[in-house]
């Protein structure tokens, strides 16, 4: 069976390689991809939208429908993970673990034992806990805020540098996942619950959709941000620029929330009890 798989892979790899020679050369000006719409985008982006980064303008403005449905696809990926994996807590665990916040000591309480109240002193943690590691905890305390700041920078500067909603959302989600790794899943879900991550995910898509609908209400086409120019201080060109920014923020929120949501479900195998 293994050999059969190897043969199939070699055949398909060879096919892909042979097809590579038929592709147009890199930077070929007469290839089909760079003769129809690309020159239009490259020449008109700056005067249409005042966005120097052509990729951002194409993604969020010229091909707005495409990106809208991409965001919806990401949200439905989170939804699919939820429906496939999520199972309610089946049985009460044999023992519960609580961490004393001041000293980092861990209490193990057998079934039937008296449980300390959820207070500022004790925090319930995963039962497959990892001993409190000073080095990793301190590093994450130092690094997480800067990773979050970098993520916001990537979202906000999609106009000028590589980046935008998707990339920034991934980095922000990674920052929250880093917090979950360095502490544990239970203390993360207490700060950002599953319900609010799902709501934020759909909220991001709604921001995108709402911007498009607002454009219709203001008399322009769906996702034609130049309709936003009725607001004071905006001309059609800068309105398109701001419209792209709003859309990117919506995408960023959606991607962050969905990343965290998928992590919750995957890391705990659906129980949301014990994480990585």
């Amino acid at each position: 069976m293994k050999r059969l798989g190897l043969i199939a892979i070699i055949i398909f790899g060879g096919l892909l390689f042979s097809i590579t020679f038929e592709l147009p050369d890199l930077g070929d000006a007469s290839s089909p991809a760079s003769t129809h719409v690309s020159p239009y985008y490259i020449e008109h982006t700056l005067e249409d939208t005042s966005v120097p980064n052509v990729v951002t303008a194409i993604l969020a403005d010229y091909r707005g429908y495409d990106t809208l449905f991409e965001t919806a696809v990401i949200f439905s990926a989170g939804l699919a993970c939820f429906f496939l994996l999520r199972i309610p807590e089946r049985k009460a665990p044999k023992a519960r673990f609580y961490r004393h916040l001041t000293t980092g000591l861990t209490l193990r309480i057998e079934k039937g034992g008296r449980i300390p109240e959820e207070s500022k002193e004790f925090e319930r943690i995963d039962s497959a806990w990892v001993p409190n590691d000073v080095i990793i905890n301190m590093t994450c305390r130092l690094v997480v805020p800067f990773v979050q700041l970098f993520a916001l920078y990537v979202i906000a500067h999609g106009h000028h540098s590589p980046g935008g909603g998707f990339q920034g959302g991934v980095i922000f989600g990674a920052a929250i996942i880093l917090f979950a790794i360095s502490n544990n899943l239970r203390s993360t879900t207490r700060r950002l619950s599953e319900k609010s991550s799902a709501l934020l995910g759909s909220g991001g898509v709604i921001i995108y959709l709402g911007t498009g609908l607002l454009c219709i209400l203001l008399g322009a086409g769906f996702l034609n941000y130049s309709g936003l120019s009725v607001f004071p201080g905006l001309d059609p060109v800068s309105a398109r620029s701001y419209g792209i920014l709003i859309v990117e923020i919506g995408v960023g929120i959606a991607v962050t929330a969905v990343m965290v949501w998928i992590y919750y479900n995957l890391a705990s195998a659906g129980t949301q009890e014990e994480g990585l």
């Binding site: 305390r141 130092l142 997480v144 805020p145 979050q148 700041l149 916001l152 920078y153 906000a156 500067h157």
Partner: peptide
Amino acid sequence: FHLGLGVIACAIVARLSSTKL
């Protein structure tokens, strides 16, 4: 414009994690 965005972003981050840093 970009400094204004910076103020908003820094306020969000500081609100989320001032006790951490």
